[in-house]
């Protein structure tokens, strides 16, 4: 699936495809034409992706073929022992988690799970978790604390689920509780934003010693569409809002929220899933090795300092 701004590439790609088919069927040789088009594709691709703005990045971050949590688990873990339920109400599918062996490191993985198909998406509520999801995540994180396992939290959500049942069961309380309890976890917490970091739904499992972002992911207090509707009184001004909100990985590093950006292949993670997953694995292992050497007290203090520094008031 090509995004709007990728249309010029899609045209060249389909032309190449047609010529390749003709090449097989007919006696005429199209090799020169194909080579020329492939060259054009490379230069066009360079041009298209070098000038993508925050709004295009939002499109890539939401790309339906982008790798999801289960892809990362499958690509990086020799074992994943999924654990279920919040012990209060149910087993939300918007957030999943469990024991995992990530390149020889035993860890607890939690994270948002979107779906690839309509059925999967309905089951996972499009990655919008309910209070049960946040409580399940906290239950697993507390278990990780007990077993002294590092926690890796994958963020990819449009936001916490806005529903009647979610409110009735305390969406606000569940997120608030996680923010508090995550701040004192005695084990390493690595947070990685792989797609959409949607507001309270993201930070609800996002308090870490280190926060990583894929280069085409976004992290924001409100969706660009929501912000445009409120502050521009016009949802179609989402591109303007996306720029004003400063939601790209580069912005977040500059603002001191994100510690490291994991580069994606040209065009986005979905264009080369294996390469993306490998890079994510390399960076995770690097931080796991470093954080595992830190004492519980240092981990807690470092996490506290990281957040108390954000928005610290400086006299002008």
């Amino acid at each position: 699936m090509a995004l709007d701004f990728e249309k010029p590439l899609e045209e060249i790609e389909s032309r190449i495809g047609e010529l390749k088919k003709l090449n097989e069927k007919s006696d005429v040789d199209f090799d020169t034409e194909i080579a020329a088009l492939e060259k054009k594709l490379r230069s066009t691709s360079k041009r298209v992706y070098s000038k993508i703005g925050p709004w295009e990045t939002v499109q890539i971050a939401r790309h339906p073929e982008r790798p999801l949590l289960r892809d990362y688990i499958q690509g990086l873990c020799t074992e994943f022992l999924e654990l279920h339920g919040d012990r209060c109400f149910g087993d939300d599918q918007g957030i999943i988690g469990g024991f995992a062996t990530l390149r020889q490191h035993r860890v607890m993985i939690i994270g948002h799970q979107k779906g690839k198909t309509v059925e999967e998406n309905i089951k996972a509520n499009f990655g919008m978790a309910s209070p049960d999801g946040y409580r399940k995540a906290m239950r697993l994180m507390n278990l990780a604390a007990k077993y002294k396992l590092p926690i890796v939290s994958f963020i990819d959500t449009p936001g916490a689920y806005p529903g009647l049942e979610a409110e009735a069961r305390g969406q606000a309380e569940a997120i608030a509780r996680n923010l508090t309890d995550m701040s004192t976890l005695p084990v390493p917490v690595i947070v990685i934003v792989t797609g959409e970091g949607g507001s309270g739904g993201a930070i609800g499992i996002g308090v870490g010693n280190v926060v990583l972002m894929l280069s085409n992911s976004v992290y924001s207090v409100i969706s660009p569409e929501g912000c445009a509707t409120i502050l521009w009184r016009d949802g179609s001004k989402a591109p303007e809002a996306a720029a004003a909100l400063k939601i790209t990985a580069d912005d977040l590093v500059a603002l001191g929220i994100v510690d490291e950006i994991i580069p994606e292949p040209v065009g986005g993670a979905h264009r080369n899933m294996d390469a993306t997953i490998e890079s994510v694995g390399d960076v995770l292992v690097k931080h796991l090795r470093r954080l595992k050497k830190m004492s519980a007290k240092r981990l807690i203090d470092q996490r506290y300092d990281k957040y108390s520094k954000i928005g610290r008031y400086k006299k002008k």
Binding site: L179, T180, S183, G200, I203, G206, V221, Y304, I310, G311
Partner: peptide, 26 residues
């Protein structure tokens, strides 16, 4: 709720204030 005009910095105040509450609990 959060002040949109301060973007992600305002979102992070949720974590910052809750960490301070956690210290009071301790």
């Amino acid at each position: 709720g959060a002040r949109m005009h301060e973007g992600i910095i305002s979102l992070m105040q949720m974590a910052k204030t809750c960490a301070a509450i956690a210290r009071l609990n301790d």
